[in-house]
């Protein structure tokens, strides 16, 4: 161990190298590093944002799809209901019509029956009147006994 001027020389060299490093080496490298770090951070943030947006839109699409499905099923069931109701209504009206037709048929038949009865009665009355006329040609005056004959006709 011989202390000599190497000590001083080393101190000077050290000072020079450190000064050079401080001035010319450290700043460009650390600046480039910081810049790149910022770039990468930005890129990552953008990617993250994109990913989140994508997720969000996917979510939204799903939601819309689900809503559409619900809507469709609602519409379907509504249509079903409506169809059922229509059929039911149609059935009902058909029934009513049927009843009405049957009813009117009945009344018509009744009317015709009545008419026929009436006609028959009148005919019977006129026939019996004729018969009576023929029998009673001479003795009975039509005019005098018409009330009795009418009464009889009504009773038939």
């Amino acid at each position: 161990m011989n202390p000599n001027a190497t000590l001083i020389g080393q101190m000077i060299a050290f000072a020079i190298f450190v000064a050079f490093c401080v001035k010319f080496v450290w700043p460009p490298i650390i600046n480039a590093l910081r810049e790149r770090q910022a770039n990468i951070a930005d890129g990552l943030a953008a990617a993250e944002r994109g990913r989140r947006e994508h997720e969000l839109s996917e979510e939204r699409a799903k939601e819309v799809l689900k809503e559409a499905k619900v809507e469709a099923s609602k519409i379907l069931s509504l249509a079903q209901n409506q169809g059922d109701r229509l059929i039911e209504e149609a059935k009902e009206t058909a029934m009513i019509e049927h009843n009405r037709i049957v009813q009117s048929g009945h009344t018509e038949v009744q009317q015709e029956l009545n008419q026929a009865k009436q006609a028959l009665r009148e005919q019977v009355a006129s026939i019996s009147l004729a018969a009576a006329e023929r029998i009673l040609e001479r003795e009975v005056d039509v005019k005098a006994h018409s009330d009795v004959l009418d009464d009889l006709a009504a009773q038939i």
Binding site: N4, T6, I29
Partner: peptide
């Protein structure tokens, strides 16, 4: 020789290596 002497070898190598460091890093910088 006492204090007024210098170790040419270690001093030289130390400066060479320091310069190597500076040049390498300066190139990259």
């Amino acid at each position: 020789m006492g204090f007024a002497a210098i170790n040419l070898d270690t001093m030289g190598w130390s400066i060479v290596l320091g310069a190597l460091f500076i040049i390498l890093f300066r190139l990259a910088a």
